[in-house]
């Protein structure tokens, strides 16, 4: 129990760290905070504009009060205001978040399932030909940067074979809510999701494999083998329950890294998501928007870690019973 409680506290600490980082960065770096917080160059502003922004951003107030104003903007959900785009950061991110999450969550699910199935098979017969083949190929795949995987898939499947589209998440003229819209979406999601799965799979697979290999050396697995139980039963009834808790944690952790990967992939496949929004914000130096994206990403990461830790408590009978007896 204390382990999970500690995990959750640490995740919340990381969350606070990002909030403080977001607050401090524009204020301590050399240069005018107004330039950072609006994204406009100081020289381009009239005195009146400058005073307006200084007032609107509460920059004359002492730092603790500024921090409270910042927390308030996070609390009411507006996440700050992008003066470049003339909209609240929330509205800008909210429009795009769905697309990013579709890529991220789909690929996290697919990656986790494949990693589990392959990892259990490999771990149970460590050193066998299947294990060696899968491990070698995942190690090689691990040396390819995510964007290269995306580029290769894009070149081959979208440009050379023309099997899949090379941009966007929907074809033009397909109405929302229909079956064809759904199928069209899957067709568009295929390559981005495949890229992210290939990028994330090696490390997840190796972790599951090592977990499973450790359990395979236990005596009850040996006994199960000598009783002539099928490999399937051993894998899913003997090994899986024992690695379930670390596996769930692994899935929780991968949401964060998958989000990062999705941001890169969106740029390749020209998908209207948070990643393209981030690139756009970076090129136009829209600092509030960049910080908002960092905040939302961290929030999702913290949430998924807390959820996975909670789920670990639910599925782990050892921990539950210990609580009761105490």
């Amino acid at each position: 129990m204390t382990k999970y409680r500690k995990d959750i506290v640490t995740a919340l600490l990381a969350f606070c760290f990002v909030i403080i980082l977001n607050f401090i960065l524009p204020r301590i770096l050399p240069g005018d905070p107004i330039a950072y917080l609006t994204g406009f160059a100081e020289e381009d502003m009239t005195v009146k504009q400058y005073e307006y922004y200084e007032d609107a951003l509460h920059l004359k107030a002492p730092l603790p009060e500024q921090f409270l104003h910042y927390l308030k903007s996070l609390g009411d959900g507006s996440l700050g205001y992008s003066y470049k785009k003339e909209a609240t950061v929330r509205s800008l991110i909210f429009n795009r978040l769905g697309h990013t999450l579709q890529i991220t969550l789909t690929s996290v699910c697919i990656t986790s399932i494949i990693a589990l199935v392959l990892g259990l098979s490999s771990g149970l017969s460590k050193g066998g030909s299947f294990d060696r083949a899968v491990t070698t190929s995942s190690v090689i795949l691990n040396t390819v940067p995510t964007f290269m995987i995306g580029i290769v898939l894009l070149l081959f499947f979208a440009f050379h074979k023309k099997w899949f589209p090379y941009a966007n998440l929907s074809s033009t003229g397909v109405r929302k809510g229909t079956v064809s819209f759904f199928l069209d979406r899957i067709w568009h999601l295929f390559l981005p999701v495949l890229t992210l799965v290939l990028a994330q799979l090696p490390s997840r697979f190796l972790l599951v494999r090592n977990l499973a290999a450790n359990i395979s050396e236990e005596k009850y697995v040996l006994y199960a083998k000598t009783r002539g139980l099928s490999r399937r039963t051993i894998k899913y009834h003997y090994i899986f329950p024992n690695i379930a808790a670390p596996f769930i944690n692994l899935v929780g952790m991968s949401v964060g890294s998958a989000l990062g990967g999705a941001l890169v992939i969106e740029n390749l496949f020209s998908i209207n998501g948070m990643g393209t929004l981030l690139t756009d914000a970076v090129y136009s130096l829209d600092y509030p928007l960049i910080q908002g994206i960092l905040f939302v990403t961290t929030a999702f990461m913290t949430l998924s870690i807390i959820l996975s830790d909670g789920l670990c408590l639910v599925v782990n009978p050892k921990l539950r019973k210990k609580e009761r007896t105490q």
Partner: peptide, 19 residues
């Protein structure tokens, strides 16, 4: 432990835009 949980890539992007 806290650094393990930070979204590395996005934080790096934010920091390198500022710096």
């Amino acid at each position: 432990n806290m650094f393990v949980y930070l979204p590395k890539l996005v934080t790096l992007i934010v920091l390198s835009t500022f710096l």
